[in-house]
Write a protein that binds this DNA or RNA. Structure first.
Length: 314
DNA sequence: CTCGCGTAGCGTTCTGAGGC
DNA sequence: GCCTCAGAACGCTACGCGAG
């Protein structure tokens, strides 16, 4: 098997490679042109390799390099029921081209096993790991480190839970259309493109994300979520609200019923959901994310006041 | 020290009943 | 229609252990 040019692993490596290639090309120009004019096969092969490398390099797509204590969360995902808060012990539904409840300006159709907040945790973390290299390249990690970084226990059920989350994120089809700043955008595909569980040699799990995911991470399409704050929230509804209100600098008022739909709650009665909502909002105040909240007794509209950064850090 | 696994019991969440 | 509360279900956690 002929040796192939190794793929560059990071943006800086790619840039170095391009510089080296260009320098090399300049050196060879005079002699190279003469060789190629005579149909020198090595010269042509070299030119092809070089073109491939440069094309590869120009195609590089990389996520924004946010800090370690935050996670990049695409607004359309936070403002919809794609990652729902459904009861944990309820069997997950298999959905087929199901329209997902979302705010105005976001349209989502989903096929696959129902996704919940634990899937979102895993997805956010995979994207976080993937941000340091070009999208579409393999991301490698140990299950243990992944569990630790999500604050999950490292006991056997958690490994299985993590495996199933990645499986669900791989075996689906999502169609997202949303308005962002400069007009309508969209994404279609799986959330995780490919995975390998536990490489026999190094015990690492490997996943590959779809490069087209970059559409969801344009500067006006995603939010940098406070990860440590999210980790402290154990209730799925509190996690969802945290993500939802994180994408709103000045949150609008939403009716309890609207929030129930947006978060994909499985509560049968609205007052049951209202109870859970009150507890979750209290939790967000406790963690310093919200300054206060209120449900209007007449209109049933929920209004929240976000804490300033300084207040949140206290 | 990191990683992976097993298990008992706790805790969270939802539901239905009963009352207002 | 809404609220409170007790019971049920089961997922999650704490803890300990072993391997590398």
């Amino acid at each position: 098997m002929p040796a192939t040019a190794s793929k560059p692993k990071s943006l800086s490596e790619v840039l170095l490679k391009i510089e080296a290639t260009i320098a090399n090309r300049k050196k060879k120009t005079a002699a190279g042109q003469a060789e190629m004019a005579f149909g020198d096969s090595e010269g042509l092969a070299g030119a092809d390799t070089m073109r491939g490398e440069v094309e590869d390099a120009l195609d590089i797509i990389q996520l924004p390099l946010w800090e370690n204590q935050v996670r990049g969360l695409p607004n359309p995902l936070a403002r919809s029921a794609l990652f729902s808060v459904a009861r944990q012990n309820e069997p997950r539904q298999h959905l087929k081209e199901r329209p997902i409840t979302s705010v105005k300006g976001v349209e989502i159709f989903y096929t696959g096993e129902e996704l919940r907040q634990d899937d979102e945790d895993v997805f956010l973390n995979l994207v976080h790991l993937a941000r340091s290299q070009p999208l579409g390249h393999e991301v490698s990690f140990t299950a243990y480190s992944m569990l630790k970084s999500m604050g999950w226990p490292t006991s056997s059920p958690s490994y299985e839970r993590l495996r199933l989350c990645i499986l669900r994120l791989t075996a689906n089809a999502v169609e997202i259309r949303f308005d962002a700043g400069s007009g309508k955008r969209g994404y279609g595909g799986t959330l995780v493109q490919e995975f390998t569980f536990k490489d026999e040699e190094d015990r690492h799990w490997k996943v590959r994300l779809n490069p087209k995911l970059i559409t969801l991470f344009a500067s006006d399409a995603y939010t940098q979520l406070d990860w440590r704050q999210r980790l402290k929230l154990r209730s799925p509804l509190a996690k969802w609200l945290h993500g939802f209100y994180f994408t709103h600098r000045e949150p609008f008022g939403y009716k309890v019923e609207t929030l129930k739909g947006l978060c994909g709650s499985s509560a049968h009665q609205l007052y049951h959901f209202r109870n859970g909502l009150k507890k979750a909002l209290d939790l967000l105040v406790e963690e310093g994310f919200l300054k206060s909240w209120r449900i209007d007794p007449v209109t049933d509209v929920v209004t929240v006041m976000r804490a300033t950064r300084a207040q949140a850090l206290q």
